[in-house]
Design a protein around this nucleic acid. Structure first.
Lengths: 199, 199
DNA sequence: GTCTATACTCCGATAGAC
DNA sequence: GTCTATCGGAGTATAGAC
């Protein structure tokens, strides 16, 4: 990159997305605002609107990046879990807990209702790819039907999201648990559910 | 009660708490505001401040009422589940899903971090009673230690909260599931986890 | 492409009339 | 005990200078 041109950034658009993740990780969706993201980057509150027409478009870009990155981490966790299909799907729960703790971008961001009817083909494709990856991991456990694979994915994400959400809420605070403890508990719970499902 | 005195209410304080639940059920903590509660009751935005000094005190009153009511519903669900200790604790998950769907007041409200250092003895006592009830149901499954009972309660609430939260988020929208379906799935998942815990 | 300045809305909270 | 009116703060978004 070339030298400084006053206060200007090299790629404010990318930095806005990055700073959005940092803000979400610290304050959750509740604390997210375009103004706060701008403040964090030391740019004016108007600057983001040169790159995103409104708040929803910025959130959509964050959602797309999160779907892409979470899918990559889920696949890596499944690889690291070995060849047992149940262990591979259960590893998704641990990956979810760690990813959301680090980035603040879980289901409520990636599949935010306010983005459901949002015409963004790139994002749609990335969220679809994430779901496809999850469904393939579920199908590999021996689910006889598509509907059953969906149910297994929902159970896995529900457990992971439950632990993540309570952790972020401070519900486990007394013993000052670390993320990795929570991720392991989510993984173990998920494995138990999947094992008893008969696969 | 006597006849109308202009626009006045018989018991605005109680109605504010009731309306807060309705608002939380519809819009979540995200959409909760003192102004919105006042609007819902057709009173001025200043009226609530005659009964609660600030927003936190209103939320604390909601938290206390929710802890009291959820505890009652949890106990009723455990009774209805019969005498098997695992079934009784698993029934907590279903009761949680139904209660939070109806009232919007789950862990994020009852144990809201912003109320953690709040000097309200009545509320403290009610949240403590709720936790005691849950721990007793967990201990009855044969947990040898207090710490293990805590872990079982956390697992049960995590599963219930995960399903509830994803349901509220619209994650299950495709098949337009009913609350009772989700409550049953949370109960079944909880029972599986508790069964495999060896009790 | 970023700035300053501004308009609008919503919320929390207070003052003072009735 | 509720009202009207108002202030201050934060957020979304736009206009216009540079």
């Amino acid at each position: 990159m070339s030298a400084d041109r006053g206060y200007h950034h090299g790629d404010l658009r990318a930095e806005l997305i990055e700073a959005s993740f940092a803000l979400l990780a610290e304050s959750g969706l509740r604390g997210f605002s375009v103004a706060a993201v701008a403040r964090r980057l030391r740019v004016s509150s108007a600057a983001p609107y040169r790159h995103f027409p409104d708040r929803a478009h910025l959130l959509a870009a964050v959602s797309a990046a999160a779907a892409r990155d979470l899918r990559a981490e889920v696949e890596a966790a499944a690889e690291a879990a070995g060849s047992d299909p149940v262990a591979r799907l259960a590893a998704v729960a641990g990956a979810y807990v760690r990813y959301v703790h680090r980035t603040g971008a879980g289901v409520p961001v990636i599949f935010a209702p306010e983005l459901h009817h949002f015409p963004d083909d790139a994002r749609r494709e990335l969220t679809r790819a994430l779901m496809t990856t999850l469904l393939e991991l579920a199908a590999a456990t021996g689910s006889p039907s598509y509907q059953e694979a969906v149910t297994l994915v929902e159970a896995t994400i529900a457990v992971a999201h439950g632990y993540t959400s309570l952790f972020a809420e401070g519900f486990f605070a007394h013993k000052s648990h670390a993320v990795d403890d929570i991720a392991d508990r989510a993984t173990a719970a998920s494995r138990t559910l999947l094992t008893s499902a008969g696969h």
